[in-house]
Design a protein around this nucleic acid. Structure first.
Lengths: 216, 216
DNA sequence: CCATCTTGTGAACAAGGGTTCACGTCTTGT
DNA sequence: ACAAGACGTGAACCCTTGTTCACAAGATGG
């Protein structure tokens, strides 16, 4: 059996694929380049994944698994909003550091149009949207969070900031943009970024017309 | 002179180019399709713009001009932060409505990597970053805005939310995402979106440890 | 150790698309 | 109205790239 050898080369194929698709897009990615970078022949690549589309799907699935794994370690544990937000921010920062290629792929896909993009949105955001909206609604009920805003909207803005946080860590455009606004690279400023984002979020979430509800 | 005829067809070329590049990316865009959609021969397209790269650059410049025009009508007029934010949000919502193709192109470019993306970031965000940071610092000095946060970071998060606002209006993935979080389309919910975002921003910007600074 | 089967290889094939250029058509100047 | 020039046209060229397949190399079973 050559399977033993192929096992780790399949890893490398997916890794190379994620990087290539993220950098060049689905149309721009080159199957020969991917195979070469993984040290595998194009023939083998096609044997395992059928065609470009199928291989792309495999790369995507791999990325989604990694994201799920990160989210899984955050959800479940009960905590106040502030602690909860801090955990998510930390987890996403780590994800950006360890799986930059996945985030770049995610960013590229979100930018592409068509029905595929919409389906992808349902697949990825469906989970988090319910998760966030539920947690926020609970926080409102408990009196930790402001009640004068729609929990759906709060969740939406929350995720907006988190998406941008991810892109900021991994994608060239967003990294340069961070440098323009704040100076330095996102890596070097990770602590500052986490601290200030938390302050920003706390204010946005606990403010109320009548006064501040400072959490327990 | 055929120039008279070509003049309005050049418009259509750029328009078609923006749409195609935004939808398919630089690599995926098809020059034949663009020419056809504009009712012009490929030959003419190449006569005017040299090659794909040059034509792409022209499409991009056209988009940037449109963005500058929108920003120009917002800056200059002095106003408190709340009024200022409202103006920008309104302007960007209108921009999204009228120039969806430009926003999609912008989104696609931001997702692409490499040196081009970094240069683009400096070109686009350089202006707004100074603009926002300056306005916010002034607001802090005047006592309208919280002083316990770095104005650069405040400006950064502000722009993060505005970028996402734009994408939400124009790009398939982000539109679907909005639907998941909030229900309905961004167009139908424009008022709600504007109102809630303003509330969110106001809280995030005017909160302070010691209490709320309610603007004059 | 040989026959057979499984799996990997990369040259070759075919389609797609960026780019060119010989030609036709329209404008201009006289 | 005609010659000269400018401009638009789109078929053809050629390179890139997704995909296949005849062959080679290694594994398996006896």
């Amino acid at each position: 059996m050559l399977k033993k050898l192929a096992e780790e080369q399949l890893e490398r194929l997916l890794e190379a694929g994620v990087e290539e698709f993220a950098l060049q897009g689905l149309a721009g990615a080159n199957m020969r380049t991917i195979a070469e970078r993984a040290g595998v022949s194009v023939g083998a690549l096609y044997k395992y994944y059928g065609d470009k589309e199928g291989f792309f799907r495999a790369c995507l699935d791999r990325s989604l698994e990694a994201l799920d794994a990160v989210l899984a370690e955050v959800i479940g544990k009960e905590a106040g909003f502030r602690e909860y937000a801090r955990r998510i921010i930390r987890a996403l920062l780590r994800f950006s550091r360890e799986h930059a290629g996945y985030v770049r792929l995610y960013c590229a896909l979100a930018a592409s149009g068509g029905k595929d993009a919409r389906e992808l949105a349902r697949e990825i955001e469906g989970v988090t949207s319910r998760l966030y909206a539920g947690t926020i609604a609970a926080g409102q009920a408990a009196g930790d969070l402001r009640r004068d805003m729609d929990p759906a909207m709060l969740a939406f803005f929350f995720d907006n900031l988190l998406m941008m946080l991810q892109f900021t860590g991994c994608c060239d455009y967003y990294r340069e943009r961070f440098r323009l606004y704040c100076g330095g690279t996102p890596e070097d400023q990770e602590e500052r970024l986490e601290r200030e984002l938390l302050k920003f979020l706390e204010a946005a979430f606990t403010f109320e017309e009548a006064g501040i509800i400072h959490e327990a």
